[in-house]
Structure formats: structure tokens, C-alpha cells
Amino acid sequence: MHRKEKLVALCLTLMLILAYAVALAAPKATTGSQGAAATGAPVIALGASVTDEAGLLSEGEKNSLTAAIQKVEKAHGVRIGIYTTKVLPQGYSPEKLANKLVDDYYSDAANGGMVLILAMKERDWHLSTNNPMRQRITDDAGFPYLRDSFLSQLSDGKYAGAFTTLVQKSDEMLTYYEKEGKPYDPASEFNILAAVAAVIIAALGGFMVRASMIASMSNVQAATEADTYLKRDSVNIKRSHDTYLFTNVTRTAKSKKSSDSSSGDGGGGGSHGGGGGKF
């Protein structure tokens, strides 16, 4: 009885995975070709920390990155996955693939999971976070900060460095959340530039208040005109002639709102957070 139930569950799971593999592989089979990497994309080693199908990392880099991820996972009760591929599987946008990987393989930790995918042919990247992770790394504040920390390294081709930075920054932000009880927001950090500006504005404001208070100590003012002494009925306009000269026309173009292409689609509602773009 007890054993039988277990067996059925196992069978069902296997069937599901199989169906999945077939579903994903099917479109590929019909169009033919594509590399082995693409075919393998959806059936990555279940929930591995690093899956480097594009072969961007050396064995040593992969091992130390894996160790770093596992340390962070343990410390904060989260899952982090890094997945590189040569080409995106058919019918998958970077976002769709990343969301799917998070849901399928990296959602088994209490405090959330995230997956960064890199598709080398398309030069697409996407970082997907599930809902518990979005509480810790918010779409509006935390994600852009995280993105800015590793994106330039990614563009420069320093993949190991970019991934390590991602893991480090995530660690910092998760630690911050646990300590402060609220998600990390770079806006709440001390900003030197803003502080300098504030001091200058404050000094200027203080000086202006002082100057106006001092000015109010005197109301002595020279008279420049004699309006009061004009005999209104004596005004006699003798000549009044207006000549039209010319017309000036100036045109100024209205500035259009330009969208930020590198940030791609982040935030909003839905079940996933994060974002992506080209690198």
C-alpha cells in the first residue's frame, strides 16, 4: 500500500520529465539540425549550481564558482543557478527559459531562487528571480544594482568574474536583508555627491535667509520716477505710429522618451522578477 503509492509517484514524475523532454525536443526534431547543446538545454543537470554548456569556464573556475554558490545557498537558504548555452532552445526567449529553470529546478529553498542564463549566439542574458527572492532582491531597486555590478564584466567577456561578482553581490544583499529586515536599496546608501550638493544648497539657503533678513532691516528706497506728480489730464499723445517689421519663427523639437535597451524587461507584476538584455 505505502510502497505502491511511492512507486506511482515516481512513475508519474518520470513520465512528466519524459513528456517534457519530448515536448521541448519535438520542435527541434521537425526543423532538424541544431547542436547538441541546444537539445540538452531543458534537461540540464537537475539544479546544479553551474551548468556551463557554452564552455566559458575552466574546470578550476567552475569548481570555485560552484563552491562559492553553495556557500551562499547554505548561508541564506536560497538557490542560485548559472546556466550558459551556445544557443537558445527553439521557442524559448531568454526570459522564458530563465523563468522555467527557476521554477523547475531552483525553487526548492525557503528563501527563494535565482537563475542567470547566458545565450552566446544571441548574446542574451537573463536573470530570473522567483517571488521569495524578489522580496530580497527587489525588481525596482535591488535588481538594477545587481545588474550594474556584473554587466560590464559580462560585456568584456570576463565570464568567471561576472558570475563571481553576481554571487558576491547577492550574498551581500541577502545578508543585508537578514540584518535589516528590508531589501537592499542603493538609494538608502550614503551618497557623497548628494551630500556635497546638499551642503552647498544648505549653505546657499542659509546665506540667502541671512541676506534677506538683513535687507529687511531697512526699507529705504530711492524714487526713480515721478508718476505721482503727473497731471493725468495733461497727457496729450501727439503721434502714435506702429509699423510691422518682420516675423521670427523658431521651432524646437520636443524630446521623445527613449527606452533603455540594456535593461530589457524587469519588474512589473507576475510571478518572476529580475531582467535581462544583450551583453
Binding site: 503727473l230 497731471k231 495733461s234 499723445i237 506702429d242 519663427v249 524646437t252
Partner: peptide, 25 residues
């Protein structure tokens, strides 16, 4: 307009002359 702000300035020259009296400035 949708994509432009057009400022049209018509310029005139105005001549005036007149007499008036001021008392006890």
C-alpha cells in the same frame, strides 16, 4: 504640434510722442 514647439514672434516698431505736465516733484 505633436513633435514641435513653434514660436512665432511678430516684431513692430512703435513711435510715440506726446506732451504732459508734472506738478511739484
Amino acid at each position: 504640434t505633436n513633435n514641435e514647439t513653434i514660436t512665432e514672434t511678430k516684431v513692430y516698431e512703435c513711435l510715440r510722442s506726446g506732451s504732459m505736465a508734472f506738478e511739484r516733484i
